[in-house]
Each structure stands twice: as C-alpha cells, then as structure tokens.
C-alpha cells in the first residue's frame, strides 16, 4: 500500500505500484482537472506539484510519491493559501487565456510553480518555465501576459502588506 498526501489530505493506493500518478489521481481519486495529453512527459497537461515543484504525473509511478505531498489543480485552488494560485487564476480569467482549455490546468500548475520561485519573472524566465507545456490552441501570448499580470498583483499586494505592517 502506498500512502501519500493528496491536496493536503492523507490518502493511499492499493493497486499496482507502477501505476502512473496521473491515473491514480483521475481514475481512483476522481480528480479529473489533471489531464492526459501525451503519456511521455512531452506536453505538460498532466502537471501536478510534488512538494511544491512541478511533476509530470503521467510518467511518475505512484511508488515515487510515497510519503510525499501531491497537489493537483483542485487542491491548488481550493487551498486558498496560495497567493500565487489565486493571482494566476484571476489573471487567466481577466484576460481570457483559455481556448479549448484542455491544457490549462497544466499551464496554471507550471505558472504557479514559477511564481513561487520567482515573483517577478522576465519573458525569458516564463519561456523557460513554460517550455514543457504545450497548448495546441497556441494561447501562449496570453499565458505570458497572464503570468506578468499575476506577478504584478503579487508584487502590489506584497508591497501593500509591507506598508500595512509598518503603519
């Protein structure tokens, strides 16, 4: 039996330990926000966070996450603890990033991981972080803008927090 944290809750899996995390999340745990796109870590639609870093769940045997903390798009946005996640989602809606939408969970997961590590990314930082996430609708221009916008709101709220503290 493999035990791990999923979206902040302890959970377990009793099946084949080589089962990719993607199918455990989707088939067993019924969290379908994480998508299948290629099965070989080429497209990023299956991106989740493992202990806060991006992970392609389609090539991750469930045995690899034993005792670790997995966060999916559902957990990322329901936790409300992630200012980055909230900022990214708001920016995505404000400039209407998605088209078909199928890749967007993965895009959001990568964007949030980037912003957690780098609160003011350049275009190049964004291209580096998002290079593994394919969008066949090619919403890339708005993804880039969305990340900049999210970074802007994070910076603004951070500076207002600082002011609040000093006041």
């Amino acid at each position: 039996m493999i035990k791990f944290q999923l979206n902040g809750k302890q959970t377990e899996f009793n099946g084949d330990p080589s089962t990719p995390l993607l199918w455990v999340i989707r088939d067993e745990k019924k969290l379908t926000g994480t998508k299948y796109g290629c099965g070989i870590a080429q497209c990023g639609a299956c991106t989740v966070h493992l202990n806060g870093s991006t992970l392609r769940s389609c090539v991750t045997p469930i045995s690899e996450v034993s005792g670790k903390e997995v966060t999916t798009i559902e957990g990322l946005l329901s936790s409300k603890v992630s200012a980055e996640a909230t900022a990214v989602q708001r920016a995505w809606v404000a400039i209407d990033v998605p088209q078909c939408g199928y890749c967007q969970s993965g895009q959001v997961m990568s964007a949030v991981a980037l912003l957690k590590a780098n609160s003011n990314p350049t275009d190049q930082d964004i291209d580096n972080a998002m290079a593994g996430n394919i969008c066949r609708c090619a919403t890339y221009q708005r993804i880039r803008q969305g990340i900049h916008d999210a970074a802007g709101t994070l910076t603004a709220s951070a500076s207002s927090n600082v002011k609040g503290e000093t006041a």
Partner: peptide, 21 residues
Amino acid sequence: RPKVDTKVKTNGEAKFTLDLQ
C-alpha cells in the same frame, strides 16, 4: 467579453469527455 467557460477552464472544473466517470 471573457468567454463563459473561462473560469472552469482555469480551475480544473471543466469536464471533457475523458473526464466522465
């Protein structure tokens, strides 16, 4: 106007055929 389905396509709620169980 943003599309009506944008928010659910941002938070993982949008259901595609593959997601049906």
